[in-house]
Every structure is written in C-alpha cells, then in structure tokens.
Design a protein around this nucleic acid. Structure first.
Lengths: 113, 113
DNA sequence: TGAACGTGCAACCATATGGTTGTATATGGG
DNA sequence: CCCATATACAACCATATGGTTGCACGTTCA
C-alpha cells in the first residue's frame, strides 16, 4: 500500500495531463519561441475563442505557460522550466530502469523532490 | 489553422495521458525494475483488482508496459522505450525554446517523426 | 474432476473534460 | 463619451475517465 496523492503528485498529474492534448502542446510550442496573445492563439485553431482560452488556463495551472497583462491583452509565454521539470521526472524513470538509483527509498518516492 | 490530430498525435496523447495518474506512474516505476503480476500490483493499492487491471490496460495501450502471459498470470513489464519516447518529445520542446531547431518546418511539425 | 485462483470484461455510476453560446468587465481609440 | 476589442467566466451538453460489482473463462492443483 504505497503512500500516494500528495500535493506534488497532483502537480505532476496536472503537468502531464496538460501535455496530453495536441492543441495544448501546440500552444506551448508556439509560445516557447514567441509570446502570443490569447486572440492570436485562438485564430490558429478551429474552435471557439472560449475553448482556446480554457486550454490556456489549463496550461497556466500546470505551469507550462505564464500570462502577462499588457493593456487589454494577455501575452502568453511558454515556460521552459515546466518542460524541464517534466524532463527531470522522466529522467528519474530512466535512472530507475538503469538501476542507477542509489538510495532505496528513491524507488518508493514519487515526485516529491 | 495548424494541421493536427493525426495518428501520431493520438499516440502522444495516450502517452502523456497515461502518465497523468499517480497510480499508473507508480506501476510503471515498479515494473521498470522488476516485472510483477497484475495481482501483485493490485495488492499494492487501495482499490479493487478491476481498477488496477484497468490502469494496467491504459498503460499497455500507451506502450508504457507490456504484458507477458505466464500460465494463468500476466507478467507486467515496464517499457523503457516509451519513457525515452516521451523524453525525446520533451527534448524537442527544449530545442525549440533554445532556438536549436534548424529546419523551419520542424517548428510546425508536431510529433509525427 | 472440481474448486480455487488470475485475469478480462461488461454494466453501471459519479465526476471531469472539452466543447459550445452567452454575458460581464476592462481597455483603447475616435 | 461610445463603441469596438480582448479577455474572463458561467451555464450547458456530450463524452471520457476512474471507480465499483458481477460474471465468464482459462489455468493450476488437490
């Protein structure tokens, strides 16, 4: 009976969940190179403005993008730190597989680093 | 209007979606070091056998684990290749952010490599 | 052979998700 | 000041998800 579902776990859930949608991944990709307003993003996809706005909100909650008010617009900017956080998590799995995990409790620990 | 939602996209959706659950991540972690039967896994979590069996099925569809029949049991084995596939995808985002993407169309391409 | 075990799967339920439309609020420009 | 624009958010709907219980089926073994 492994101890689970702490705050860190919920955070990781949100991170991977946010990445599990093509439109959202596209938004992240776009805003990593150049920030864009919500309207600009919305124009790119075949769905309502509100739908895109919701996707941005999901990404923001997951930490994958940040929003920066600029007058009446919000500049959406991809957050490379969140990407690296996801990478770090996957790296842990690689480590586990390669038996590179030194402390035994690291095997039991989830993402609460 | 970016072209989206091809087969590769659906596959990536499944991959990240599968990782967006703590119980499933735990199963992956466990089975990366040592294969386990579905029953053994089920004993570890505070939910029904069927629930765990469903989680394993989700992981299997995402390619994160493979199942190997052994008599009446199924040995569940974590698949490091799927982890690496996820890593490769995230690496692409890093590359994009660092402006390391050479071909311009790589910016538009999603995960259909 | 028959009982117990391991697994898969269907049916069901509550809640979450991803979309819609409509409305409210704030900002910018004429 | 008014109007158009940019965003946010609520209400609603269909479908997906994550859990449950119950049953069917193959395998092991006494």
């Amino acid at each position: 009976m492994v101890a689970r579902s702490n705050d860190a776990t919920a955070e990781v859930d949100r991170l991977f969940r946010a990445l599990a949608d093509g439109t959202r991944r596209d938004i992240v990709r776009r805003t990593l190179t150049r920030e864009a307003t919500v309207s600009e993003l919305a124009a790119s996809y075949d769905m309502s403005f509100a739908a895109v706005q919701k996707h941005v909100a999901v990404l923001e909650r997951a930490g994958l993008v940040t929003k920066h008010p600029q007058g009446r617009e919000r500049l959406v900017r991809g957050n490379p730190d969140a990407i690296r956080r996801a990478q770090a998590l996957l790296d842990r799995y690689e480590d586990i597989w390669r038996g590179r995990v030194e402390r035994l409790d690291a095997l039991l620990a989830d993402e609460d680093t």
